[in-house]
Design a protein around this nucleic acid. Structure first.
Length: 429
RNA sequence: GCCGCCGUAGCUCAGCGUGGUAGAGCAGCUGGCUGUUAACCAGUUGGUCGUCGGUUCAAGUCCGACCGGCGGCGCCA
């Protein structure tokens, strides 16, 4: 009698004696026979206990078992086409490890988004919720592999900071022993400092945005994959993003086959190169659809969504106006109003998943930019100072992990990509 | 910040127009059934109708304010 995980139980020959531990995902009683579906994080397997075959005491215990009770059972593997996946465990004995109260998440509860997220600490036990979290892990794992293979160094930047990478209005403020401090929106500035020591770096850590954005693609706390490399121009930067996304998608399709199946997601990894569309071309496209906007403004969601739905693989929107970008962006050599930056947009209407660009490496240029945008110089002192000590041209990008998960897993809302999502209306559980 | 929708049993909802003291399905519980897969059959428990205030003999229902959630916009990964 060996202790095995459920995934292993499917590999063993018929008749093998096994001991399994897990939770009762479902139970049904049919007279003298009781079926439970056991879950242990590695899979699901049906176990059947028949009156007369197992002892009366064990049968009574099996009767008392409720949904989500933690149990340990002993039995033997048997093949039966009536069982899901054609296999089950014939129970010989069962013990209750931790009895569960009446389980609040019922079939009808699935209809209620707010209920499911109020009970997220419990509802994550569902097949779909677990599948999404495993896909998210698959994405992170693949990203780590990708950068590791290319010699990038993982760094960690502080999440408590004093200066903003993006707009100041979207920072979570906190009291740092009497001083104002903020939760970081991005690790970019710290990565820029780090490249002069390490050459090429990446991070995998949370970012915070105090945007009251109630949309299917916004979280207030989310994880980012960010990379920065010295001597890398914007062209190479886009190629790197292409390679990263392609690598991740291929790995996930390979590693998370079952999870994608549980979600009913037929996902085909994209083939590079990804199409590139300039901002001006987007503006022209929008005007043709009667959705025109002013040059220099950000691209409206309707336009981005429409474009995104017309594509079958991710694509870049390049050549953003400086007015729609943060101060640190480098502009084109022949046009100081257009930045060397690009957004990476996922297809099928999922929208933006990454932003990247070439940063200003010249001291005077950055100084003038900070002054012209009337930004608080003292906050950017060290960032600017980097440019006095051998800062080469460099570029980088940031990918939203949950946004990428949303696209790969085919989710309707980004909150499903987070174990305990933080949105403007939710900080609990 | 703006626009729209919704808060009634553990869950999903009906009841509100025409005010008279709460109802269904599911879940739970009890019993039956030796192959369930969203099991089935019979019985049954369960509610200060989001909160506060107002009108009224009487408010789940009418009026007002507030709170909470959901969908969308703007903004962004």
């Amino acid at each position: 009698m060996s202790q095995v995980e459920i995934s292993e139980a499917f590999q063993l020959p018929e008749g093998s004696a096994v001991k399994l531990r897990g939770w009762v995902a479902s139970k049904s009683e049919v007279g003298g026979i009781i079926f439970i579906t056991l879950r242990d994080g590695t899979g699901y397997i049906q176990a059947a206990g028949k009156k007369g075959v197992i002892g009366e005491e064990d049968f009574q215990r099996l009767k008392r078992v409720t949904k989500e009770t933690a149990v340990e059972l002993e039995g033997s593997i048997r093949v039966d086409k009536r069982a899901p996946k054609g296999r089950e465990v014939a129970i010989k004995s069962l013990s209750i490890i931790a009895l569960a109260d009446k389980w609040p998440i019922t079939k009808s509860a699935v209809k209620s988004t707010s209920f499911l997220y109020d009970y997220r600490h419990l509802s994550i036990r569902g097949r779909k919720a677990s599948a999404v979290i495993k896909i998210r892990w698959g994405i992170m794992k693949a990203a780590i592999e990708f950068f590791s293979q290319r010699g990038y160094c993982l760094i960690s930047s502080p999440t408590i900071v004093q200066s903003a990478c993006e707009g100041g209005a979207t920072l979570f403020e906190l009291d740092y022993f009497g001083q104002k401090a903020y939760l970081s929106q991005s690790a970019q500035f710290y990565e820029e400092a780090a490249i002069c020591a390490l050459g090429k770096v990446f991070i995998l850590q949370p970012a915070f945005r105090a945007e009251k954005s109630k949309t299917p693609k916004h979280l207030t706390e989310f994880w980012m994959i960010e990379a920065e490399k010295a001597f890398m121009d914007q062209e190479e930067n886009m190629k790197l993003q292409e390679d990263l996304i392609t690598y991740i998608c291929n790995r996930v399709v390979e590693d998370c086959k079952e999870e994608l199946e549980v979600l009913g997601r037929r996902f085909k990894p994209p083939e590079p190169p990804f199409p590139r569309i300039t901002y001006d071309e987007v503006l022209k496209f929008a005007s043709e659809q009667n959705l025109g906007f002013k040059w220099g403004e950000d691209i409206p969601t309707v336009v981005e969504t429409l474009l995104s739905k017309s594509q079958t693989k991710p694509f870049f929107i390049t050549d953003y106006p400086l007015s729609a970008r943060s101060f640190y962006h480098m502009t084109k050599p022949d046009n100081e109003n257009i930045t060397l930056s690009a957004d990476l947009i996922a297809p099928e209407g999922h929208g933006e998943i990454a932003t990247g660009g070439q940063r200003i490496h010249d001291y005077q240029t950055l100084l003038k930019r900070i002054e012209s945008q009337e930004l608080p110089m003292e906050n950017f002192r060290w960032y600017l100072e980097l440019r006095r000590y051998g800062m080469p041209p460099h570029s980088g990008f940031g990918v939203g992990v949950e946004r990428l998960t949303k696209w790969v897993a085919g989710l309707k809302h980004i909150r499903a990509a987070s174990l305990f999502p933080r949105t403007p209306t939710r900080v609990n559980p």
